[in-house]
Every structure is written in structure tokens, then in C-alpha cells.
Write a protein that binds this DNA or RNA. Structure first.
Length: 177
DNA sequence: CCCTGATTCGC
DNA sequence: GCGAATCAGG
């Protein structure tokens, strides 16, 4: 993916609107959040408001080049992250409305069948990750549409609560119907 | 652990 | 110029 004017423009727009690098990366598609951040820096349009304070970045430990040595991986805390964003979302023709105000809001639904419905994070499609609940709220065609976005688990695409709704036992489903 | 942005540096 | 790896902080 290369940075044509269109993509750069969108990048600038989203960045100025306060979206996070990962969100922008997801929106653009085909790039990592690092790529976005790197681009942002090169464009010299860094700080916007205050995301993460920029105290005073200091040098980092030089990375020892491994050529013929027998340096082994440290047994330390280098966490292994198998990160991977959606990578391919059909956002090409999708005109997403960026209502920054409404994005991070949460709301509470009273009850449903005597059970409290968890607070939804109301995430947009591009904000879903491998471990956010993908239970849809509302009409996908509506501006109001959102995803639950809570936990998720390695056991499935939904949070604990929605998993129960989704994978309801046949017997119980029949009864509730 | 999840996430954020910031920086470095090999390509 | 690009962006993965890394760092630092919440």
C-alpha cells in the first residue's frame, strides 16, 4: 500500500479528529498502526491535543546486531504478541460517519428477561479486534448501529453474556420461543 | 493484559 | 520515505 494523496488526506483528517493510530490504520486498510504513526511523524503533524504526553523521548538501548554471535533470546518478559487487526475490511466503498462524540460513549439498557444486559461499548466495525464482542446492536443500516465490544474470549466471538444468547441450548430456546 | 503514541533504524 | 521493532506510559 502506498500513500497516495487520497489516503494521506484521510489520514490527516482522521488524525485531526482524534482517532487513534490503530483506528486510522483499520480505516485505511492495508497498513499497520505503526505505519500510520510513522507517516504522521513524517508529515510533521504530530501532537494533537494530548493523547499520550510527550515527556522527553530518550534514546533506546541499541539493538545488538546478531550476525555470527550466539546471542540467544532473553528469557525475560518479551511478551509475544500475535497481533493482527482485521486486515481486510470492506471499507473501500463504505462511507463511515465519524461521530467522535458518540463513539466512546456507553449506555445501559434496563433489563431483558430479568437479566441485566451488560454495558455496551458501542464500537464501530473498524474498532473491533480479535477479542471484542462482535454482537451487533441495532440496525446495521442505521447511524445508531454499533457492536457490543466487551470482552470476547478465545472461546468465541462474543462476550460471556452474548455468547449465552448466541449459543442457547436447543431445549431452552424452544422453551423461550 | 489490553491499549496508546514515540523513536530508531534497516531497508 | 517507509514501517517493524522497540520503548515508554496508561
Amino acid at each position: 500500500m502506498n500513500w497516495n494523496d487520497e489516503r494521506v488526506e484521510l489520514l490527516k483528517k482522521l488524525w485531526s479528529e482524534g482517532l487513534s493510530a490503530s483506528q486510522i490504520a483499520a480505516s485505511l486498510g492495508g497498513v499497520s498502526r505503526n505505519a500510520v504513526i510513522g507517516k504522521v511523524h513524517r508529515l510533521k503533524l504530530s501532537s494533537r491535543g494530548r493523547a499520550t504526553a510527550a515527556p522527553a523521548r530518550q534514546k533506546k538501548a541499541p539493538k545488538a546486531a546478531v550476525s555470527a554471535g550466539s546471542v540467544s533470546k532473553s528469557a525475560g518478559r518479551m511478551s509475544s504478541q500475535t497481533r493482527s487487526m482485521p486486515a481486510s475490511i470492506g471499507a473501500t466503498a463504505l462511507q463511515v460517519q465519524f461521530d467522535t462524540e458518540a463513539v466512546a460513549q456507553t449506555y445501559i439498557r434496563p433489563v431483558q428477561n430479568n437479566v441485566v444486559v451488560p454495558i455496551s461499548r458501542r464500537l464501530r466495525l473498524v474498532e473491533l479486534t480479535e477479542r471484542t464482542c462482535k454482537w451487533p446492536n441495532g440496525d446495521p443500516l442505521s447511524e445508531d448501529f454499533s457492536f457490543c465490544g466487551n470482552e470476547s474470549a478465545e472461546t468465541g466471538p462474543y462476550c460471556k453474556y452474548h455468547a449465552k444468547l448466541a449459543f442457547q441450548p436447543a431445549a431452552e430456546r424452544r422453551r423461550n420461543r
